[in-house]
């Protein structure tokens, strides 16, 4: 009887600690996923900040060598990293004070969705600084992040509204 009272708790302990290990493994997996998601979100936030600071060095650090921009989101001809840089250069030249603000952000594994608005001053005639227009825009994007680098940026933006404000 005495023996049994010793053996019984030991068996129970073994049983519970086994279950505990399984639970812990499942929990670790979930935690790793949520940590990765937080990292992916932070990376996209850091990248979008460089659109405000126009810091190409940090921008470069965020992007994978195989980075592609899809504009519109399902285009069969995405821009390569080189082409994207040229395009962004042109954008900053046309709208030197362009400013982006994140309105919403959600993440699932490697995908990060961002909704943003932006404002910029448009100067139709560079020789006439009094002729200025404040323009606002909006967009929703999907980023894909692999191994801590952005590999893909798919964009849908209110191009039509933007053009209308510019008087095009």
């Amino acid at each position: 009887m005495k023996k049994l009272s010793v053996v019984f708790p030991v068996i129970l302990l073994l049983f519970v600690s086994c279950q505990n290990k399984e639970t812990q493994a499942a929990l670790d997996e979930v935690k790793a996923k949520s940590e990765l998601e937080e990292q992916n979100k932070a990376l996209v936030e850091k990248y979008l900040q460089t659109w405000n600071s126009q810091n190409f060095q940090i921008m470069d650090e965020c992007l994978d060598d195989e980075f592609k921009i899809y504009l519109p989101s399902n285009t069969g001809q995405p821009m390569s990293l080189e082409k994207s840089k040229e395009w962004i250069d042109g954008l900053f030249a046309t709208y030197p004070d362009i400013h982006y603000e994140i309105q919403d952000m959600l993440v699932d594994n490697d995908k990060v969705c961002v909704r943003w608005t932006c404002t910029a001053t448009y100067q139709p005639d560079p020789g006439d600084p009094t002729n200025r227009k404040e323009i606002t825009g909006s967009a929703i994007e999907i980023y894909r992040v692999v191994n801590g680098k952005i590999t893909e940026e798919r964009v849908e933006s209110d191009t039509q509204g933007w053009n209308q404000q510019m008087g095009l």
């Binding site: 519109p72 989101s73 285009t75 919403d104 969705c113 929703i140 191009t159």
Partner: peptide
Amino acid sequence: SAIEIFRVGNGKILEERTEMDALG
């Protein structure tokens, strides 16, 4: 093409925010 964000509460859609290639 388009990208949207939906907001759901209590099993119903509350909000649909759309950006689409309207120019296209």
